[in-house]
Amino acid sequence: MRRLFPVTDETAARPDGGAGPGAHPDADREWTLQELATAYAYPAPAVGGGPRRPWLRANMVASLDGAAQHDGRSQPLSDATDMRIFGTLRALADVVVVGAETVRQEGYRPARAREAFAAARAAAGQGPAPAIAVVSASLDLDFSLPLFTAPLVPTLLLTGAAAAPDRVAAAERAGVRVVVAGEGAGADPARAVAALGELGMSRLLTEGGPRLLGQMVAAGVLDELCLTVSPMLTAGGAQRVAGGPSVPVPQRFALVSLLEEKGFLFSRYRRVG
């Protein structure tokens, strides 16, 4: 892997914070998990202490022609390095927010503890693994799946006040914590982010799908996008990384970093302002 942006000279600090002798940060080499964790670190808390503001990051993959999926799944567009970054982003997060349709299509399982990140998570006051928070209006989910019955950290369900009571009861019987974050049947993105923050979860990561990400973009709550551009063409009518209606005015994001390996581009953008 090599870093294309920001550009550094040969005296620059390494991605792990070191300096002096050693591998140049822009050299084509395999980065350690610690280097990836440093490169993708969440913003530090504001000076003066107090509770952290929830920071919502998205991690998505897209083909060269803009497809977010192939045959309904994102995995065919990925590779080993993309999955290492995927695992690192999860290891940094307090909670992974995901739409119900993505849970069904991708066969979501509970997040697992990663020994390589155990000490860092403990030092940051985090549990052994991030919680999974499923966003659903219909609650049409199989609550007998391991995601709900055997998570290392209890799974959350973000929904609205008008959700079907029998489905809410089914979720609670399975040990799922139901969080009401909207007045209708579904969760409102801004209220969902705020509700997770009130639960002490400030490092938020969403893995989509496109419909959920589109709702977050429209609500103006997305702080950061980590987008892998896969060197593949798929054609067809697959969804983009963010779906739904367009926003009234395009939202400007600024490039923070750009990594490359084997033709895959790993970009990171933050919302301007």
Rank of each mutant, 00 (worst) to 15 (best):
R2M: 05
R3M: 15
P6E: 03
A13Y: 11
D16N: 14
P21S: 12
H24V: 05
P25Q: 12
D28R: 12
W31T: 09
T32I: 11
A39Y: 10
A46R: 15
V47M: 07
P54Y: 09
R73Q: 11
R73P: 04
S74N: 05
D79W: 08
M83V: 06
M83D: 06
R84Q: 12
T88N: 14
D94V: 12
T102G: 08
R104V: 06
R104K: 15
R104W: 06
Q105D: 11
E106K: 02
R109Q: 14
A120S: 15
R121E: 13
P128C: 09
P128V: 10
V135E: 01
F143D: 00
L145T: 15
G160Y: 10
G160K: 07
G160R: 07
A161Y: 04
G175N: 07
R177F: 00
V180D: 01
A185L: 11
A192R: 09
L199M: 14
M201E: 05
M201P: 01
S202T: 14
G214Q: 14
G220F: 05
V221I: 03
L222K: 01
P231D: 07
A242T: 08
Q251T: 12
L255V: 13
K262D: 14
F266A: 00
S267P: 06
R268D: 02
V272M: 08
